[in-house]
Design a protein around this nucleic acid. Structure first.
Lengths: 249, 249
DNA sequence: GAGTGGTCTAGACCACAGG
DNA sequence: CTGTGGTCTAGACCACTCT
């Protein structure tokens, strides 16, 4: 056995620790696109872990689109075009960072509301049950790019104020730390739509202009629905995503 | 060791074999949403495989959004709302099946073209290099729902005819079997846009109507770009996707 | 404390790619 | 033929959840 590791004295699993080392090397641009990595056996020896642990690190990075491997050929650095296209739940700020922009928001309204029949069905609560609604404009480099209309299922008595949200960098972080909001997975439904009068006013466009419409249901680690969010984005907004291998393996 | 298995005498890896058994049970509706599966140790014993093989099967299904697991709690059936939202490359026919609809197409044009500067850059070829362009209308239950304008990098001398495409159920299948086209991954870029005159005519809508615009670059197993496709869908079309856990693990 | 998933090891053999 | 990734095993211990 080795001494866990050097600087990252946290109890990080060894495969994630290894993945971080390799991932950092790649993100620093020290390895070219499609360049081969050392073989799994060599990595195992070099970092004093079992080959199976190396394989876990490799799979971990493959899932994230950082590297890919071919049977009998080797493991390689994924080209830049696919790196960083893996989506996460709080993807807006994420996306902004990837583009070198600054994500922002202007909260229009935060209020407790009673669940409508439509939303109650989606969130698995009874119509009339209390929800927290947060309506906001999303900004990118201080320019409005979209609208978010979110409805949260929060524990009774959870009180969120406008100033809290504005102080917090991330709404999700605030809800997670204060109210045990624990998003684990989300389902999104994208389509195109035309701007309504109100959308047009808020986004400073014309009524009828095209918008990217995204409906999202967020699920907890127990797969209970905890948020419904209706998002509308300007046509200049880009939603990047990565698609895995074919259905037949 | 056991006798591999009963009917599926193929040399399917044991973890996929196990995943198929469990997956079939779930898709047949024999297990309720969020119902707990037997523990990994029990599955290992029952199916006479090592626990590690069970874990591989579990991870395999987790990636596909079929099940999920919680540390110290157990493994559970993913709710129907998330099952089947994992996207694959040839997703159009896939989507159609999931909705109980029939995917179709009407090929407008298939012709060799010289790469424009814009497309050459994306496909990593030189401007003027030969590409195969396939322009078609996508149908769902015989109604037009979108336009696909695809540019393929194929081996020199590859000849594809209109009748071949119309006979083949899937264009991807045709290209894969005939010309070694081997898609492994794709990057998609979604946005909203307004219908041009030509789009409106083909889709039978008004100029300026909102469209869901999807640009895709498909990569081979060696991560070389092999297809660029510009897709435009009616606002009634839904693009469903699933998002994994947060960025912090 | 009992039971669960999560990590890790040290071997083994198979399947594929490339000279 | 050699080297690579892919599969599989039989243990071990840790970390978490629930009662």
């Amino acid at each position: 056995m080795m001494k866990i590791d050097d600087t990252t004295a946290l109890t990080l699993p060894r495969y994630k620790w290894l993945a971080n080392i390799i991932g950092t090397t790649i993100s620093q641009g020290l390895l070219a696109d499609n360049q081969a990595l050392p073989s799994e056996r060599e990595l195992a020896e070099r970092y004093e872990v079992s080959r199976d642990t190396v394989r876990k690190a490799v799979r971990y990075m493959e899932e994230r689109g950082i590297i890919y491997s071919g049977h009998g050929r080797g493991t390689f650095v994924a080209p830049a075009i696919v790196r960083g296209t893996t989506r996460f739940i709080d993807s807006f700020s994420q996306d902004a960072n990837n583009r070198g922009s600054v994500a922002g928001q202007r909260v229009l309204n935060v209020e407790p509301v009673a669940a409508s029949m439509a939303i109650a069905g989606l969130l698995n609560v009874r119509p009339g049950d209390p929800l927290l609604r947060i309506h906001r404009i999303r900004l990118m480099d201080n320019a409005a790019v979209g609208l978010h209309d979110a409805y949260f299922v929060l524990p009774p008595g959870a009180k969120v104020t406008l100033s809290q949200i504005e102080r917090a960098g991330s709404l999700y972080k605030l809800l997670t730390e204060k109210f045990g909001f624990a998003p684990a997975e989300a389902v999104e439904n994208l389509s195109a739509g035309a701007a309504e009068q109100e959308d047009a006013r808020l986004l400073n466009i014309q009524k009828g202009d095209p918008l990217l419409i995204c409906e999202r249901i967020t699920l907890s680690d127990r797969r209970e629905p905890i948020e419904y969010c209706l998002m509308k984005y300007l046509s200049s907004y880009r939603y990047k995503t990565r698609i895995a291998k074919r259905s037949g393996d």
